[in-house]
Write a protein that binds this DNA or RNA. Structure first.
Lengths: 130, 130
DNA sequence: ATACACCCTGGAGTTTACTCTAAGTCAATA
DNA sequence: TATTGACTTAGAGTAAACTCCAGGGTGTAT
């Protein structure tokens, strides 16, 4: 699969894919004789994983470390597991912040809904919560 | 309340609070005769809201626009409501990405758990999902 | 064989959201 | 009143994660 096809599949730019490879967010991609990237099934899985984790704002450095351990071999299994568990904790924490913001938004939206009908919005309606 | 107290209350730097005020993420804060910030209850509510929304990665520009409308007065109620609804959609979308990443992480973690016990990890265990 | 779209690398530039610095002011304490 | 520590502004600097560019190579359709 060419870089362009991968870009279209995952809706990212070629620059991003090359960047990921360059800094080690994904392992090196297979090449043709002419030096052009030819993504294997395996390469594509790595891309998919990277994009999934980056969408959840997992830091680049953490993904790089994971790939580094992966390439080092089987005696890094335990380290990789720990890294994944840390990542999970981090993402759960982040998600909680989204939930908090949603609660605040829902409160505001309900008050604004009312206000748009009645034409009145008290200051507390805009800034209170819970 | 001094800037330092607000910093401690919300665990942010004074630079961040001044920056938020400067660019309009929060309205201008009340000052003492000497020109020193003296946060009122209302100011603090704005800070709290800004920090809550920024924790959910709501872009600065969106918060600035909200404050701009707020200061413009009551005939922006409908616009502010729309903005809040857009923000909610955005945050729900973002949260979904976190859920996807968590699903992938859980899959990987379960496979790694197994592998750490048995000492074997197939490639698919690391890269498959669902 | 030549045009054309696509690909390559290395390195510089951009964006967002702060974060820091310099040079000075304010306010409480000794 | 002098020191000390917190506060002020304007403006420059920084970190993360891309994003763009120049200059050149690849590959395939005419």
């Amino acid at each position: 699969m060419t870089i362009k096809e991968v870009c279209e599949k995952y809706n990212v730019t070629a620059d991003t894919l090359r960047y990921y490879e360059r800094v080690g967010v994904i392992p090196e991609v297979r090449r043709t004789a002419g030096g052009i990237r030819d993504y294997s099934e395996e390469d594509i899985k790595w891309v998919e994983t990277a994009i999934c984790f980056r969408s959840a704002r997992m830091p680049i450095d953490l993904l790089i470390e994971y790939v580094r351990l992966y390439r080092k071999g089987d005696d890094t299994l335990r380290d990789r597991l720990e890294l994944l568990i840390e990542a999970k904790k981090h993402i759960l924490d982040e998600r909680k912040k989204y939930d908090d913001a949603l609660a605040k938004l829902d409160y505001k939206i309900s008050k604004y809904d009312e206000a748009v009908k009645t034409g009145v919005l008290k200051w507390d309606d805009d800034n209170g919560c819970k």
